[in-house]
Amino acid sequence: MTTPTSPAPTADIDIHRLTALADVMLPAAHGMPAVSDVKAVESYLPQVLGWRKDLHQPLVRAVDALDPSLFTIDRLSALHEEDEDAYVALTTAVAACYYLSPVVRELIGYPGQAAKTYDPFAYTEWVAEGLLDPVVDRGPIWREVPG
């Protein structure tokens, strides 16, 4: 079961190589930073692999298999065909690291799955406003059955 865990060692993963791959997958564009701009891999990969130890070995395979100097999105698609587990590990780890960055979260307006309070009786306002009236006015739509 996943519980809050310690960061995993990542000595067997070439962080610079992975970051170069990640920058192709998530480059700076449309007002968003590249993975390296927010240091997402070096900051969060140990924690991500601490949470998801099953990703570690397939990620090692993915990093070994891809040459950053030749890496393109088409090559990423090819990895999907060649080694699906490696593809899933690479895309999951890169995305998880990137979207754990507070800078990125701020830019997309995502505070995490936050708790919110609300008035449970606020529904009386939209009922009084008549939002349901057309539905009620059309009458029953269930079918009477014999027996």
Binding site: L26, M32, I108
Partner: peptide, 10 residues
């Protein structure tokens, strides 16, 4: 993936 990723997310 690639630059279009950010456009899609936005």
């Amino acid at each position: 993936w690639g630059p279009d990723h950010h456009e899609l997310m936005g």
